[in-house]
């Protein structure tokens, strides 16, 4: 009887807390999708600082880097790492520009499918169109203050790289708080956005080089 109770309690707890501690499943994803898309419609620009933590689970290691992030509709992103190294990445529609120390590199996402997919993740997350990305199946969870969008890769290339990509957004503005990329090995990379400014004026020149 005690064993049965134990089994039932495990079953029950795994139903209530399915995958993400503190979050419950959002059953009505259609409504969420509409709300998310509507809120994102109002976001024309985002300016933010970010902290990126790479956690290497087996090594008990955390590598932290910091920088600045800018987004402008439709799909222009600038990520500027400035600690502990200098690295600039600009995504502008179909092109990626990278400045790595003295080296400059331009990549067309049209010719590089992997870059295109990663570019799309980034843009989908900030644009609120994660649901329409065909490379992933998507589930939504919520707690009191925000939503967690769990994106599971469908295609093999991304499946080899990620177990899941979890995006958290706040309930007020549906602005992205963090993006967690979880690898099969248990290692993960979490990018947390802080000091966000929504819809401040950003010149196009920020996204050119």
């Amino acid at each position: 009887m005690r064993k049965l109770l134990f089994l039932v309690s495990i079953l029950f707890s795994s139903t209530v807390f399915p995958q993400h501690a503190g979050y419950t499943v959002v059953a009505d994803t259609a409504t969420f999708k509409q709300q998310f898309a509507a809120a994102s419609q109002k976001v024309n620009t985002i300016k933010s600082d970010f902290v990126q933590e790479k956690n290497l689970s087996m090594l008990s290691e955390k590598i932290t880097s910091k920088g600045k992030f800018w987004f402008k509709k439709d799909n222009m992103v600038r990520m500027e790492y400035n600690q502990p190294f200098q690295y600039l990445m600009i995504l502008n529609k179909n092109d990626i520009y990278i400045k790595d120390g003295q080296k400059e590199n331009k990549i067309s996402t049209k010719s590089n499918k992997l870059f295109q997919q990663i570019n799309q993740i980034m843009v989908d997350c900030v644009k609120g169109t994660a649901f329409s990305n065909k490379d992933f199946s998507v589930k939504v969870f919520q707690n009191n203050t925000g939503y967690l969008i769990e994106m599971s890769p469908i295609n093999k290339t991304l499946k080899d790289m990620f177990k899941n990509i979890n995006v958290t957004v706040d309930k007020k503005q549906f602005a992205v708080n963090s993006i967690e990329m979880l690898e099969i090995s248990g290692d993960n990379t979490v990018i947390t956005f802080v000091n966000k400014e929504i819809n401040s004026s950003l010149p196009d020149a920020l996204f050119t080089h």
Binding site: M58, L59, E61, M161, T189
Partner: peptide, 20 residues
């Protein structure tokens, strides 16, 4: 990253700036 582990092995992990 080069790190000496408690079992005296050394791990070398190379990832890009975004964590891949």
């Amino acid at each position: 990253l080069i790190k000496k582990m408690p079992d005296s092995s050394t791990r070398i992990v190379f990832s890009n700036q975004s964590g891949f």
